[in-house]
Every structure is written in structure tokens, then in C-alpha cells.
Amino acid sequence: MSQIAWLGPNDSFPNPLQKPDPDPNVPGLIAVSERIYPGQLLQAYQRGIFPWYSDNQPVLWWSPDPRMVLQPQHFKCSESLQKVIRQFCQDSQSQLLVDTDFGAVIRACATSIRKDQDGTWITHEIIDAYTTFHEQGHAHCIALQEQGELIGGLYCVALGGMVFGESMFSRKPNASKIALAALSAWCIEHGMAMIDCQQETAHLRSLGAVPISRAQFLDQLQISLNQSNIELPWTFDKQILTHWL
């Protein structure tokens, strides 16, 4: 069994396909670092690796096998969700905002109470790192508002033709589903083949996500990274949701 790579500020990530997971007792764990160093997030995502850890832990870097992904055209928009989307679109007091307040969205994701989960992996370090990533044009957010109040949303990373979903939150039933529906419709409109959902959950399965092998995911990632970057800034509103109606 090889050792898990401990990365310094100038070290590169190991290639997840070149050798088996370093520790079979912790499948998908690729590397560890003391903190998230400048430029490290971009290098990680280009290799299909992401950070996921808790406070008082070193930064743990993952490339799971299998990998949960959503092909945007396979997003499951049920009749009940269609009804909620229609109401949201028709409500003059409801808004869908893109890249308007990234900090508010990621903090809402961090403080959202989730079933069967204590605490959050979205640490202060994660918030700072992804906020910088957003300022560099790599991370984005979708926020839903009703009467000026934030009711749900998500944040994600986009490189080339690949979108990496990071976290969602809801303060009102179905709000995060509406945000994901909007992201999926935008991906369809721009020819984005895949939304990376990282890890398998029943909730993601219910929305159309499926597991694929790490090798399949990394093959698609390399194809997607070679696609032209989408024009910045992202600009769309709730009318994109009519794709599902």
C-alpha cells in the first residue's frame, strides 16, 4: 500500500488513474495538504479532484470511484416540481439571481441544517478559497429570492465545458431543486454535457444523477476542459426555467 501524498505549496496532485487509491480503507482519498494553497483549487479541478474535510482536519483531497454525475438533459423535473417552477416564474416578487452575492450563497450553504449530518465541510478556509475562485471567474452561484429574501440556491465551479456542483441549500421547500433546474437548463442551452455531483446520495439520484466510473468521468473531464470557456459573466434569470414547462 502506497502512502497518501502530502502536498506542499508547490507540489502537484497525483494522477488518480496512475495507481490505485493509496489507502483502500479510505477510497477516493488522493492527497492531503496543510491548507488550500494559492492556485491549488484550479489544479485540483483540472484533475477531477476536490477538497472535502472538516474543521480541525488537514485539507483532504478526493477523487471518488464511482463518481456521481448529472447529464443536464436527464434532470428529473416531476409534475409537482413543474408546478412549483411555474408558480415561481409567475410570481412578480420572485427572482433568480446569478453571481450577485456569492458570499451570501456559500455562507447559506455552510449554515444549512442537513439530515443525518453534524456540522459542515464548508469551513472558513473553504469559503475564502471559493470566494477567491469566484473572483477569478471560476466559481458561480444561483440564488432564489422571494420578496427580497434569500430562500435557496447553489454554488458551483465551471471550467471549459464542465460544471462541478458544490452545494445547495433551501429555506423553502424545493428552492434548491429550482436552482438546480435552472443550472441544468443553462447547461443544456450552452452544450455543457455534464454536471459533476461528486458523491452519491439518494437525493441526487431522485433528480436524475447517476454514478459512473472514475475513468469515465476523467475522460469526459479532459474532453470538456478542451472546450471553449463560456463567456463571462454568467447572465440569465428565471425565464430559463421555462425550459422545463
Rank of each mutant, 00 (worst) to 15 (best):
G165F: 00
P64C: 11
L81S: 04
D219Y: 14
Y45D: 09
T100Y: 09
F50D: 06
Y130L: 09
A104P: 00
G48K: 07
L225A: 05
T242V: 02
Q57I: 01
P27W: 01
L218Q: 12
F133G: 07
E34Y: 00
Q117C: 07
M162T: 06
Q147M: 05
L221H: 04
Q87W: 04
P72G: 10
I30P: 01
Q43I: 01
L154Y: 02
P64D: 11
M194W: 00
V157M: 12
Q43D: 12
R205V: 07
G28Q: 09
P64L: 12
Q136F: 03
D128E: 14
S80H: 10
R35Q: 14
K172R: 13
L221D: 01
Q227A: 12
G103L: 11
V210T: 14
E200N: 11
M168A: 05
C156T: 13
D219L: 04
P20V: 10
T131P: 01
P24N: 11
R107M: 03
I212S: 05
I212K: 06
S228N: 13
R214Y: 07
L150V: 08
D237Q: 10
L159E: 08
A209Q: 08
M162H: 05
Q145H: 15
A110R: 07
N226K: 15
T132L: 11
Q82K: 15
Q198L: 02
M1I: 11
N226W: 00
P38N: 05
Q90S: 12
N15T: 06
W62T: 12
L218P: 07
A175N: 07
R205E: 06
L159I: 15
A158S: 14
C197N: 09
R47S: 11
L221V: 08
E135K: 14
P64H: 08
T235M: 07
I151K: 06
T131L: 04
C109S: 07
Q3G: 11
G191W: 00
S112A: 15
G148D: 14
Q3M: 12
R107Y: 03
Q147I: 03
A175R: 05
G153Y: 10
Q199E: 08
H243E: 04
L218S: 10
P64I: 11
V84N: 05
E79A: 09
P233R: 05
P9F: 05
A143C: 03
S228D: 13
A209T: 12
A215S: 13
T201K: 08
P22G: 13
H74A: 10
Y155T: 10
P27Y: 02
A31H: 02
A5E: 09
H124F: 03
P20C: 12
V84D: 06
C89F: 00
C89Q: 10
P27S: 10
G48D: 10
S63P: 08
Q95G: 01
Q199A: 13
E79W: 03
I195V: 15
M1C: 09
P64N: 13
L96M: 05
W6T: 05
S213H: 07
A5T: 13
S112R: 03
G48A: 12
I151N: 03
E189L: 08
L225P: 09
I230T: 14
A44G: 13
G103E: 14
W62P: 09
S167L: 03
F102W: 00
F164Y: 08
Y45F: 12
D196N: 15
I85V: 03
D118S: 15
L29Q: 05
H140S: 13
F236D: 10
E166M: 04
L17H: 10
C156N: 12
Q73E: 15
D196M: 06
L60S: 07
G28K: 07
